[in-house]
Nucleic acid binder design. Structure first.
Length: 230
DNA sequence: TGATGATCATAA
DNA sequence: TTATGATCATCA
């Protein structure tokens, strides 16, 4: 129960406007993780192996996002989702980015326009962070934040991917991470043994591994660079 | 090396 | 238990 790793108190001033949010990001851009941690009186963990969500949670608090795990955007009032994005040595996204959990119950009834995924991605504040293993965590620099909304083109591709994936989910009950142009579905659970069972209305049973939507690196890369690449 | 599949921590 | 936050580890 040590609280020297995780900040104990909620941030004082949640942003009221996008401008204020962006301003806050500018304040932390160029700083190191160590500096930010000190600012919050927390200790930087030696590595992220056992603290994968630490940095994300820390930044949420610093920027005034509502902490916790509500199924709402980070900045509820603004409808903005905050995401850190790990950068490799070349300044490119290092890994695919988790978006949200796949809700198997909504597969058959939800449309793209009302999908949770689309809501999550309707407005995202991307916060690039150095994530090279050779850099110690506390020395990693925070990049310049990007307040992003999908372009018409981007959204249409996402919609296409989403619909394809949903179709396969329905048809086969499972998908592979290989599917999808920008979007992919991958396992998302404590471990591979975690399965949830649902009993349908007709009494039939369904098992499945919890999965989540991820954005491929080539997609996040084009967001960061501001142009299409692939 | 990069991408896929697996895994870790916390809060409600 | 399931949502959130992501990164790790392995295989091709």
């Amino acid at each position: 129960m040590s609280d020297d790793i995780y900040p104990t108190m909620i941030h004082a001033s949640p942003p009221d406007t996008e401008a204020e949010l962006v301003y806050r990001c500018q304040q932390i851009a160029g700083k190191t993780v160590g500096q930010l941690a000190q600012q919050c009186s927390v200790t930087v963990p030696a590595d992220l192996r056992r603290h994968k969500g630490w940095l994300g949670n820390l930044l949420e608090r610093i920027l005034g996002a509502d902490a916790g795990n509500q199924a709402e955007p980070d900045f509820v009032a603004l409808g903005i989702e905050l995401k850190t994005i790990p950068l490799n040595t070349r300044g490119e996204p290092k890994e695919s980015t988790y978006v949200c959990t796949v809700n198997p119950r909504a597969v058959t009834e939800t449309h793209w326009q009302t999908s949770w995924l689309r809501r999550k991605l309707s407005k995202v504040l991307w916060l690039p962070v150095e994530a090279d293993k050779t850099i110690s965590l506390q020395d990693r620099y925070i990049g310049e934040a990007i307040l992003w909304q999908p372009s018409i083109q981007q959204e249409s591709v996402l919609q296409q991917d989403w619909e394809d994936l949903m179709e396969i989910m329905i048809a086969e009950g499972a998908v592979t991470a290989r599917l999808g142009r920008y979007l992919q579905i991958r396992p998302k659970a404590a471990n591979s043994r975690v399965i949830t069972r649902q009993i349908g209305y007709d009494g039939g049973e369904e098992w499945h591994h919890p999965c989540g939507f991820y954005l491929r690196t080539c997609f996040t890369q084009q967001i960061l660079s501001g142009k299409a690449c692939c």
